[in-house]
Design a protein around this nucleic acid. Structure first.
Lengths: 341, 341
DNA sequence: TTGAAAGCGCTAACAC
DNA sequence: GTGTTAGCGCTTTCAA
């Protein structure tokens, strides 16, 4: 590949002049500039990013560490990050944490070693303090979906408690009382917060959450399927299911179909996350929107602002919004239907 | 961040020695090596990749250009690529083509400028010749899901024709005759090949494909939903629907549910791709497996082999496999059910 | 086994 | 406006 020197020689100018027309850092006589441009095209010159990074002390790269790139959730986050980064002329370097503390650390380290100008980090498995240590090596780091008090201004998270609360409220508003919680059997904060929101909403409605129906399992379609199948067979009085996330809710719908429930009248199902799965199932899922792509974009904006030393005030906290589709029915209908059949 | 010089000074050795222990390129006296290692840890030394790339003329980066990172299909491809790359100690640089020729070219150029050691390219919108030109700038490039005669040995693709053929055969084997094709209204090769496979299978069964039921629209859940809804209302004699992909098939199932069809008995639905959507819907989708993750991994392996100048013979062509789940019923059942209701 | 030194391709002063 | 030059942090001969 051609270098800046090749271009300079062929265009009869110095390398600085070439550098100037490439970067637009200073005015260059029109004639020379045109000549340089022409030679660049002839030689298919592409500046060497490594050399640039070394000399200029910035790489133009934005690192992102996520858990699993194939997961729709992370894929959407990545998309948001990529979109925003590209607009700023930056490239995205992706590394996978694979839901494992050691690999998460390795991922961050490798990104650090690449001297990304900024890092967007989604990490659940590394403890706060260790994460702080790691990130202290990085000029700019924004943490996504996690709130670390020491760097709260560089965190962006979703209000999971409000999500659980609002979702449950929606179910209660439709008249449901016998609401089951289909939870995740892993104590990450998302899960705990959503569950607390659920309990709060029940409590406010005068329902003792200790007596509520609950089942815990894997936060996957399959997990939701199995839990719901068991639950419904033993507790047919349940009229609504509040699932930890859309994946579980989707599994839940499948279980109900298999049990020949007529949906949504025989049983309502509510999810949280608002991922594409919810549009695919029948009935389409009533859920709570989790603006992942937005979060990704905001994270990049924040990182960029930090890089530019701007004290740009921006929300670092996203609120949930109920998305009404077809999987929740009002209790009245459900009861009528049940007594009629 | 600490540099190699810092480490050298503090460890009382030359930078060459540090370089040697970092890279293991030559034996270093045990005592010195330990000292260097210790200082490296103290200083949290991370080699600067840009400097390394510049001096060593290799970046350790693998570039991938895909269309839409949030699309489950590309996300899975990316995952395969990342997994394999990481095992080889390489990092993945992702760029998005956004289904647009110009942006695809920009994506490739930016990856080129980063001096990725190898490129994995998924591109549908750039014409063959132009793509060849672009890729000629790159030491190693592997093209995925596309067959370009000039570089056939560096292409990896899926046999879409066989996929359409096998899927349709499966439907025919269940006794279906009135099979509708739910196609994509865009002439990319995937679509055309699958459709030809469909026609071939019908032809072999003595059915004139010109008289077959067909509808074309967007290759999305929504597209499948709309097409199926219209089609079924006007052509109730259709007993099976062959969809271009799983997304359309999923939309199709939703339409049938809304029309109060009992699935799969009243109408069978078959997809192609075998993405996660198929596990979420009810009934779960009978489809044809498209081993994307495998393709991603194989692409990386091929790229790595090319980098190492190995003439590693490997398949560059993946064959489809039917995945039987719940969305296809045998015609007999369907007919019985129809006449009974 | 070790160190000195010459680049890799570029940016950013600094002179003119 | 333009050219000269000193690095950026590393790898890799080449001597010792």
């Amino acid at each position: 590949m051609a270098t800046i020197k090749d271009v300079a020689e062929r265009a009869n100018v110095s390398i600085s002049t070439v550098s100037r027309v490439v970067n637009g850092t200073a005015t260059v006589a029109a004639a020379k500039r045109d000549k340089v441009l022409q030679v660049m095209a002839e030689l298919k010159y592409q500046p060497n990013s490594a050399a640039r990074a070394l000399a200029g002390n910035k790489t133009g790269m934005l690192g992102i560490v996520a858990n699993d790139l194939a997961d729709p959730f992370f894929a959407t986050l990545l998309k948001g990050v990529e979109t925003e980064a590209r607009q700023a002329g930056m490239q995205v370097l992706a590394a996978c944490g694979h839901h494992d503390a050691e690999q998460e650390e390795a991922a961050i380290r490798s990104l650090l070693s690449r001297r990304c100008d900024a890092l967007i980090v989604h990490s659940k498995d590394i403890p706060d303090q260790q994460l702080l240590d790691l990130l202290s090596e990085c000029p700019v780091a924004v943490v996504v979906n996690r709130e670390i008090p020491e760097i709260a201004d560089r965190c962006i998270w979703f209000d999971n408690l409000a999500a659980g609360y609002m979702a449950t409220k929606h179910l209660l508003a439709q008249g449901h009382q016998n609401i089951a919680w289909l939870g995740r059997n892993q104590n990450i904060t998302d899960n705990v917060d959503r569950y607390i929101g659920f309990c709060n909403a029940l409590g406010q409605a005068g329902i003792d959450h200790n007596k509520a129906y609950k089942a815990f399992g894997e936060a996957t379609v399959e997990g939701g399927y199995q839990l719901a199948y068991e639950l419904i067979r033993s507790k047919s009085e349940v009229t609504a299911i509040m699932a930890y996330n859309d994946a579980m809710a989707a599994g839940c719908l499948r279980a109900l179909h298999e049990l020949n429930y007529k949906l949504p009248d025989d049983c309502s199902v509510m999810g949280i996350d608002d991922v594409i799965l919810g549009l695919v199932v029948y009935p389409q899922l009533t859920t709570v929107n989790y603006p992942v792509e937005d979060i990704g974009r905001t994270a990049v904006k924040k990182a960029l602002a930090l890089l530019a030393d701007q004290q740009l005030e921006m929300t670092n906290h996203f609120s949930p919004k109920v998305v009404i589709r077809g999987s929740v029915a009002s209790l009245r209908k459900s009861v009528l239907r049940k007594s009629g059949s």
